[in-house]
Amino acid sequence: MDFFNVLILVLDSTVRLSVPLLLACLAGLYSERSGIFDIGLEGKMLAGAFASGAAAAVSGSAWVGLAAAILVSVFLALVHGFASITSRGNQIVSGVAINFVAAGATIILGQAWFSQGGRTPLLTGDGRFGALNLPFAAELRDVPIIGQIYSELLSGHSLLVYFAFFMVPFTWWVLFRTRFGLRLRAVGENPAAVDTAGISVAWLRYRAVICTGILTGVAGTYLALAQNAGFVKDMTAGKGFIALAALIFAKWRPVPAMFACLLFGFLDALSIRLQGSPLPLIGKVPVQFMQALPYILTVILLAGFIGKAIPPRAGGVPYVKER
């Protein structure tokens, strides 16, 4: 039974830790499926986290925080869109620039506005997205196994967690069952086909990067207002890049993206759980190694286990009408 309890705890934190990855991963999916590579997920998430922390601190409302995060993140997505769609610039350079701007600006503005060393003030109550208890969670707690799975693992997460997992089938539905999805997939593969079919390539791609902006904004909000109680500098800590890895790992498909993010979340949860406790057969392992484990496994998985990941064919290439 003890093992079962530990398992539930690890899985529970797996869910919490994979949500920002999942939101960022789906965000990247919209952009990259349309042919705009987005290495700036990290920066948009960070800017979103800061905006939500700051706005929630000032207004006292988590919803205002969420709105601010989406606004800022969509703005940065549009900057990336302008650079790569309208100006036909290099998408990697533009993405990296956004990451740098976000990393620097959040700290400077945070210090200037709140004077807490780049943090935003600690939030309480309505300033955060608190845990949401599913019906009968308390009553079912004592039912063996099922009760624990329901009340510990499924219940008691913030609204944004449920939103993130809802976005998985929703994204699948949008991509494969709607006109917008069909065109989105087409423009990432062969923009000339879309152009000659009489559809605007630029407008389609702009809508895709707006979707990306919204989702990275939610991801940032989750970090600042649900997982933490406020913005802390560099709080994304590479999650945007792990999300990109998950996206490649999932070959740009929504459901595999969810499993990839859960896997990375699980590795993260496991490394936290195993810190300091001796492993069977191996003995005590340095903390640093356990912390590095998710990243090491990321490299190994990406290097050897996914087979051929074919990105959208027009990805990274600005669309220019051929002469």
Binding site: F176, R177, T178, R179, F180, G181, L182, R183, R185, A186, E189, N190, A192, A193, V194, T196, A197, G198, I199, R313
Partner: peptide, 23 residues
């Protein structure tokens, strides 16, 4: 001007889908 990993049907309707849902 074809999308290589789309089906024939998807290529034919691209841009002429009519309503927002594909079915």
């Amino acid at each position: 001007m074809l999308v290589q990993n789309f089906s024939v049907l998807e290529n034919v309707i691209l841009g002429m889908e009519g309503e927002p849902l594909l079915n």
